[in-house]
């Protein structure tokens, strides 16, 4: 009984919502710290961070846990919502919910769904590009040497390779007789020996900046898509703020923590719910309008 109860019962579902939700709050904090390098760090630093986040085994484990949490949180949330809807087959002709509860608390499912949509598009725009896009640029820095500007790839071992020496792929390398070419989107290969001689950084920084600064037409119709993306991103952070506003302290209640620390938890939760999304939102605004 006890085992199955831990999965099926209404209360257990709430534990899982709370645990995954709180874990995702931790993820948000980490993610935010990384993203802030878009403002406070340079491109290399950011790309190094991006590489670390995609390659470090411990981080990988965490990221799988994050994917799982998002999915579980969403699926569990949907199940709960369906059950909750079933619990009241006939609604009220007149209802005045604002008299006894907050907007966020009543709309967690809607807010959560919006956030899920956001996460999916967000991952398509950045995560999928980072992982799967063959056209993902490799980070290169520009240096001035003897009055001449030169673009150099930076390898993970800290060495530099002039961009002009590197072909896009082995085919092009043979055609133009370049010494090196790029494979796997980031690895430098010797054209003759076909051996890996170094590794570059995928330029997530550039992808991000281009995304929010793009002047292209969205769907071929809406001009200045970078501005549209920025606005949408900021709106999504607003949605996230509402979700966290209720979700953070609610998780503690679901886990049975309601004691003398509860006022402090509530205050912290509300600060978290406001500050984290604002900081997230500042980044695209900064990129679009300042950079």
């Amino acid at each position: 009984m006890a085992q199955s109860a831990l999965l099926k019962s209404s209360i257990a579902k709430k534990y899982w919502m709370a645990l995954t939700g709180l874990f995702l709050c931790l993820f948000l904090a980490g993610h935010l710290a990384g993203n802030l390098q878009l403002i406070f760090g340079d491109a290399l630093q950011f790309n190094q961070y991006a590489l670390f986040m995609t390659s470090n085994p411990a981080v990988k484990l965490l990221s799988y846990l994050t994917y799982f949490s998002i999915l579980f949180h969403a699926v569990d949330g949907i199940l709960l919502t369906i059950q909750n809807k079933k619990a009241r087959p006939i609604g009220y002709a007149k209802s005045n919910p604002a008299a006894n509860s907050g907007f966020a608390s009543r709309n967690m499912a809607v807010l959560g769904t919006l956030i899920l949509v956001f996460i999916v598009t967000h991952m398509v725009n950045f995560w999928a590009k980072m992982h799967f896009d063959k056209k993902m640029p490799v980070y290169a820095t520009t240096v001035e040497m003897m009055g001449q500007k030169q673009d150099l790839y930076v390898t993970t071992s800290g060495t530099y390779i002039p961009v002009t020496q590197v072909a896009k792929d082995s085919k092009e390398a043979e055609e133009i007789g370049a010494q090196l070419y790029i494979d796997h989107g980031k690895d430098f290969y010797n054209t003759q020996a076909k051996i890996k001689v170094g590794e570059g950084y995928k330029d997530l920084h550039k992808i991000t900046f281009d995304f929010f600064k793009s002047k292209a037409k969205l769907f071929g119709a809406i001009p200045n898509e970078g501005l549209v993306f920025t606005i949408l991103y900021v709106l999504c952070m607003g949605v996230l703020a509402f979700h966290l506003w209720h979700g953070f302290q609610s998780a503690f209640q679901s886990l049975g923590i309601n004691n003398k620390f509860t006022p402090a938890i509530k205050t912290f939760g509300k600060l978290f719910a406001v500050i984290v999304p604002i900081l997230f939102a500042i980044i695209p605004l900064y990129i679009h309008f300042v950079k």
């Binding site: 209404s10 579902k13 709430k14 709960l80 059950q83 909750n84 079933k86 619990a87 009241r88 919910p97 006894n100 509860s101 907050g102 608390s105 009543r106 967690m108 209720h246 302290q249 609610s250 209640q253 679901s254």
Partner: peptide, 9 residues
Amino acid sequence: FGNCTNTGA
């Protein structure tokens, strides 16, 4: 019955 979502109502 439905599930608690801590609205406090």
